[in-house]
């Protein structure tokens, strides 16, 4: 697992941000996403980014490490920039060739698009960088608690989620091992056309599926053997506590959201 530390994977530094209640961070996630879509002008983005940057500084995670998470969506960013550049035709034409026209409006719009996508990715990965999967599922479970009254199996869903998250690194490790074993038997995964490559994946996928089912079986058996009952009210080892830091975070987040919304509504002329 230590071999490929995935982008956006928990990065422990023990900072103020890490110690926040996961519910606060989930709320922050929602605020960030809403902000990203509300932000209508470059000034609004400046405010959002300033806020995000201060969160990064507070979290003590190297900013470069955070920036790396954008790599995963780089292709999407590039494509959306190109589409917006070529197909947005309001404003004065800066450059035209054949059927393609690039306008100043398009340029501005494409710039906003980049800022928006990057903001979405950076802000949401700040959540996963600063909280463990367990914390997040605990937080989510707490938030969903009211749904219990609608007969929604909140705890079951939380358990399913945490098991799924728990097994991601295990299956990654397993994949690594199987790849190595097949490589040792002379398999190569980077030769030939698409069909040949897809075929080359079979020696990895089949053992991986077999072992995933085996693990699922064993886990189900182990849960059964311990009389596990997901619907029963269970106590937590780490009780979530709402602290002053959380309250502060809530206030700041609300302020950020309000400012962006006001700019969007045109109350603040930026």
């Amino acid at each position: 697992m230590t071999r490929n530390v995935a982008f956006g994977q928990y990065y422990p530094t023990g900072s103020v941000i890490h110690r926040l209640d996961p519910r606060t961070k989930l709320f922050a996630g929602v605020v960030f996403i809403v902000c990203a879509f509300l932000a209508s002008s470059y000034w609004a983005y400046l405010i959002c980014y300033a806020f995000l940057f201060s969160v990064v500084l507070l979290s003590k995670i190297p900013p470069l490490q955070v920036l790396k998470t954008v790599k995963a969506v780089l292709a999407i960013v590039v494509v959306s920039v190109l589409i917006n550049l070529f197909f947005y035709d309001e404003g004065t034409v800066l450059f035209s060739w054949w059927k393609i026209k690039i306008t100043d409006g398009g340029l501005l719009y494409a710039g906003k698009m980049v800022l928006r996508i990057m903001f979405l990715v950076l802000s949401t990965s700040m959540i996963t960088l600063t909280s463990t999967p367990t914390e997040l599922t605990d937080g989510l479970e707490k938030i969903m608690t009211p749904l219990k009254y609608l007969r929604f199996p909140v705890h079951d869903v939380a358990i399913i989620m945490s098991i799924a998250l728990r097994f991601i690194p295990t299956l990654m490790e397993e994949t690594d091992k199987i790849i190595m074993a097949q490589k040792a038997r002379g398999a190569s995964f980077d030769h030939g056309g698409i069909v040949a490559r897809a075929k080359a994946m079979l020696p990895i996928l089949i053992p991986l599926f077999v072992s995933a089912f085996r693990r699922a079986d064993e886990l189900a058996l182990a849960l059964d053997a311990r009389c596990y009952n997901a619907t029963e009210a269970r106590t937590k080892m780490k009780v979530l506590r709402f602290t002053w830091a959380d309250l502060t975070a809530f206030l700041v987040l609300t302020a950020c959201l309000t400012i962006t919304a006001l700019i969007y509504a045109g109350v603040i002329p930026l």
Partner: peptide, 20 residues
């Protein structure tokens, strides 16, 4: 390729790599 042909490597629980 030549290197791996020289070496017969058996991982832990090698039965989990059977696929055919």
């Amino acid at each position: 390729k030549r290197l791996r042909k020289h070496i017969g490597m058996l991982f832990q629980y090698p039965e989990y790599q059977l696929f055919a």
